[in-house]
């Protein structure tokens, strides 16, 4: 009973994401805002794979985000890379950085793991600051192009308009979303959850947990790298703040407030926070106080986040509709 109702919710997830992606540019005040939401939803998705599914609290997401932004921007500026090859470059750099950070960080657990990701995050920031010939340092990397979508030299779409770019980001988002769903519903994904729940037991069964954790890092880094690259293309600019600790914290906060352990939660979290920022920052610059309060409230009282709240509301709604008690359910409850 329980499992069937769960799978029916899960089946609706990809269409729900698709509907959100189609509706967002219609209801939001600007397409750029919708694009920004999808980009941060990707970053949160990457973070969620680590935090929600593997139980790894990483302060290193900004490294992959900033690294992806720099990789795409530099490859387009200096090597004349096209759109797809620049994104591929960002993905590979994100994955490599994540492999490096992950390989070292997963040697420790708990607080020491967190401290290692924190140390690498700070090192990446100061490195980017120092290598100002490449990264532009404090001023950021200016004049990042947004090339047209081309395959084998044939131009498919010009992305200079914000609508066209949104379309491209939306398509990419759906691709990655479906990929992430496939990953978490695969045996690999189940093993990640097993590691989150009880690493000792997972390794006692015979899983090499460090390999699984490392692969989770690599996938997370690749997705986050792509998000960083898209952000640079959106802004035509790769600021130093991409790689700051604050970026890692923001991505974490979006993931947690949206709901760890559910992919739609990442979209919801990114959407809520980016929109709140857009609406409130002009009238109340200190709106981040709300984020602090929300973060504490979610961690203490609503561990499944906003999406978890919606899910339990939906469940209650369904139960009230079928008010007649299900005999099967009663039997199950008795046994």
């Amino acid at each position: 009973m329980n499992t069937t109702s769960k799978t029916s919710i899960y089946k609706g997830i990809t269409p729900a994401a698709l509907i959100a992606v189609i509706v967002m540019p219609m209801v939001l005040p600007s397409t750029t805002l919708a694009t920004e939401i999808l980009i941060f939803a990707l970053a949160a998705l990457g973070c969620n794979l680590l935090l929600g599914y593997t139980g790894l609290l990483s302060f290193g997401q900004g490294i992959f985000f900033g690294g992806g932004a720099y990789a795409a921007s530099l490859s387009m500026i200096h090597l004349n890379f096209g759109l797809l090859s620049a994104l591929l470059c960002a993905m590979i750099v994100g994955a490599l950085l994540a492999a490096l950070v992950g390989a070292l960080a997963i040697r420790r657990t708990g607080i020491y793991f967190v401290m290692l990701t924190l140390a690498f995050s700070q090192m990446a920031y100061f490195l980017a600051y120092t290598l100002s010939d490449w990264t532009g340092g404090d001023n950021g990397l200016l004049d990042v192009p947004r090339p047209a979508l081309e395959i084998f030299g044939i131009q498919l779409a010009d992305l200079t308009s914000s609508q066209a770019f949104y379309g491209f980001v939306a398509a990419l988002f759906m691709l990655i979303f479906i990929f992430a769903r496939r990953v978490i519903h695969s045996p690999f994904g189940s093993t990640l959850v097993a590691i989150r729940e009880n690493e000792g037991r997972a390794s006692a069964i015979g899983f090499s947990t460090s390999h699984f954790k490392l692969l989770a890092f690599v996938i997370s880094g690749a997705i986050t790298g792509i998000a960083g690259a898209l952000y640079a293309m959106l802004l035509n600019f790769a600021p130093l703040s991409n790689i700051e600790l604050m970026m890692s914290e923001n991505i974490l906060i979006m993931t947690i407030i949206g709901g760890t352990g559910s992919l739609l939660g990442s979209l919801l979290g990114a959407g809520t926070i980016v929109m709140l920022g857009d609406i409130l920052s002009s009238i109340w610059p200190r709106w981040m106080i709300i984020l602090g309060i929300a973060l504490i409230a979610v961690v203490l009282f609503m561990p499944a986040g906003l999406w978890g709240g919606i899910e339990s509301l939906m469940k209650r709604f369904r139960e009230s509709k079928t008010s007649e008690p299900d005999p099967k359910l009663q039997q199950e409850a008795k046994s």
Binding site: L57, I111, I253, M288, I289, G292, A294, L295, I296, V299
Partner: peptide, 23 residues
């Protein structure tokens, strides 16, 4: 609660103190 929860809760407190100080 586990350490990760400590980190997130106090991260929230830090954010509140910082933003309140600025205001």
């Amino acid at each position: 609660l586990p350490h990760t929860f400590h980190i997130l809760i106090t991260l929230g407190i830090a954010l509140i103190i910082q933003e309140l100080s600025i205001s």
